[in-house]
Simulated scan of single mutants.
Amino acid sequence: MSETVSYGFQQVAPEEKTRRVGSVFARVAARYDIMNDLMSGGLHRSWKDAFVSMLRPRAGEQILDMAGGTGDIAFRMAEKGAQVTVADINPAMLDVGIERAAKRGLTDLVWREQNAEKLDFPDAHFDAYTIAFGIRNVTDIPAALREAHRVLRYGGRFFCLEFSTTEWPGFGQIYDAYSHKVVPKIGKLVARDEEAYRYLVESIRRFPPMPEFAKMITAAGFSRVSVRPILGGLVAIHSGWKV
């Protein structure tokens, strides 16, 4: 990893990014899901539905949901009978997810505080690995992808849902204006933290385009890597197999 990494539009030391990102999510955890609804107009729910539908979780499968925080993806997979371990580096996000799970009567989920770059799980432990809107906040993305490959069994699948860059003419400019000018203001009003949401918007802009991220997944050891753009690539579902 290089001596500096991007924290939004800034370049900082790797350990500084990890610290700052941790602070961002600790501050916004309680209102994270409300903000997702407001920022996306509720569309994030259909994106997550499509993500889990593509994964096709099956009863009895062991699935690791990394950066799973508030449980949105895990709840959907648990409904299909999968045995889900929710992992997140941020204990505040896990606390929100555990509380939400209790209200839903979901008692079989496993909750673990984990760093995506250095997981505690043994080799070849899971049937699937999911990460939704979390990979761009990882300090060392290639390391996290290698860890995802390591903990998957042969025949296991990797699925990542993340913001990207839309290729629809005109739409990208409209979304840029909305995200940079409006989203931080919503964050200030609702989450009482404009700076946190300014970072989250900037982190999307710094995330690699779809073809580049697909190459990173391949470099981590995955095969049959593919991408499904949504809204022209505003959001993308990347997938790969460990074979």
Rank of each mutant, 00 (worst) to 15 (best):
M77I: 05
E194N: 06
P208H: 04
F159L: 10
E147N: 09
K242F: 05
Y175S: 07
I98Y: 07
M93S: 06
V12D: 06
A144T: 13
A30W: 02
R112D: 08
T166H: 07
A116H: 08
K185V: 15
R198V: 03
E202L: 00
M1P: 13
R192W: 08
P57D: 04
G170N: 04
M35G: 10
P209N: 02
Y199Q: 01
Y175V: 04
V138P: 09
E162H: 06
E117W: 15
L64Q: 05
N90G: 14
D95P: 11
V24N: 11
A101M: 08
I63G: 12
Q10F: 08
E113M: 13
V183K: 00
D37V: 10
R206G: 05
I186F: 11
G172I: 00
K17A: 12
V151S: 02
S203H: 01
E16G: 01
K185R: 13
D176T: 11
A13I: 03
A144C: 15
Y154Q: 10
M77R: 04
K103W: 04
D120F: 09
P91H: 01
Q173H: 09
S6L: 01
E113R: 12
E212N: 00
G22F: 09
R224P: 12
P57S: 02
G8T: 06
G71T: 01
G156S: 09
Y7I: 06
A13R: 02
K48V: 01
R198S: 12
P14C: 04
G81S: 05
L38S: 07
G41P: 11
K188I: 03
E113D: 13
P169Q: 06
E113C: 14
L234Q: 14
V21W: 04
V28G: 09
Q114H: 05
D176A: 13
W47N: 15
F159R: 06
T107F: 07
L161C: 09
F25T: 14
V225C: 09
L161D: 08
F171W: 13
D65K: 03
I98A: 13
F121E: 12
G172C: 01
R198E: 10
M77A: 07
F133K: 06
R157I: 06
T139Q: 03
A220I: 13
A148G: 13
R20W: 02
L64I: 03
E113Y: 07
A148E: 08
E167T: 01
V84G: 14
F207R: 01
Y178N: 12
I131A: 05
Q62Y: 03
D140V: 01
I135N: 07
E99R: 15
S53D: 14
M39P: 10
G22Q: 10
K118F: 09
T130Q: 10
G134I: 08
L152S: 05
A196T: 09
S23A: 08
D193F: 05
Q11H: 11
G71I: 04
M210D: 11
V182K: 00
F121W: 14
T166P: 15
L55H: 09
D72T: 03
N36E: 14
E194P: 10
D49L: 02
K215H: 04
P184F: 00
V12E: 07
